[in-house]
Design a protein around this nucleic acid. Structure first.
Ligand SMILES: [Mn+2]
Ligand SMILES: [Mn+2]
Ligand SMILES: [Zn+2]
Ligand SMILES: [Zn+2]
Lengths: 138, 138
DNA sequence: ATGAAAAAGATAATGATTACTATTTTAAAT
DNA sequence: ATTTAAAATAGTAATCATTATCTTTTTCAT
């Protein structure tokens, strides 16, 4: 029942084959996969890799700003090879996560919220929920 | 590694003292508490209540549309006695969750996203991250 | 009051994630 | 090229919020 969401800075980060493969794998898809999906994928090329290594490196890559971690009230995280802030659509039927087209990130609303609430805003996230094009029809 | 986010409909729901107390407790605060916080609070008035009952009823109340469940990439959920869609601010330093003032929910963007992405949008959520007024000053 | 369904309380199980540890790998210094 | 200390890995155990299970109790329509 404890939780810090501070992004702690990392000291030296050495280059490893494991981390490079994990990043390449995540960058090669736009499906916003889970850690386990990445693990299964990466294992085909590096059979001895362990799930802990995948989690550790996803955390390191997030701290490095190379990837994003997404969490939509699900039991598990999804990861995004695109670290630029952007909005997502989540299908409530099939669980698919997609990038939202035609809706760029509005930074002005951050300033407004900061002003009106006497806070400092770093960023915001927005997720749309509904039915994807596949699940829409019937 | 499985997860459905469908809101399954509930059949008969009977009135219980436990659920009423849980709802009253959640409605009496604007701190967006965790299940455990609610449990500890409710236990003072009903010492034999079990944590499972708190979780079960928070789920039921959510299905009934009486409350909202929030999840901000944390390890645990927070709950909101106000079921009307509204935006939240999360302090990355102290973890506090607050309602955002002066920024009403924009339903037009839902239509835009639906049109541009060929999807059906039920709703969207938006969370701002930064430093609260307390954590801002040094 | 009666009975069937729903819910409670107690406890065990689940499962994604993290922690631990002995061994290996990286990369800078020699 | 060797040495060396720090960082990372593989393998495994632990964590812990949440769910499931199961027996008993409560609710509520009849
Ligand atoms: Mn994305
Ligand atoms: Mn709220
Ligand atoms: Zn779908
Ligand atoms: Zn704060």
């Amino acid at each position: 029942m404890k939780d810090l969401m501070q992004e702690e800075k990392k000291g030296f980060v050495r280059k490893t084959r494991q981390r490079e493969l994990i990043l390449k794998t995540l960058r090669s898809t736009n499906s916003h996969p889970t850690a386990d999906w990445i693990y299964e994928r990466v294992k085909k090329e590096m059979p001895n890799i362990s799930l802990g290594t995948v989690y550790r490196n996803l955390g390191t890559l997030r701290e490095m700003g190379e990837i994003m971690e997404l969490n939509y009230g699900s039991k598990f995280s999804r990861f995004d090879g695109n670290p630029e802030n952007h909005y997502h659509f989540v299908c409530t039927k099939c669980g698919k996560v997609m990038d939202v087209e035609g809706c760029s990130v509005d930074r002005e609303v951050d300033e407004m919220v900061a002003r009106e609430n006497n806070v400092e805003v770093f960023f915001h996230r927005m997720e749309f929920y509904g039915l994807c094009s596949d699940c829409k029809e019937k």
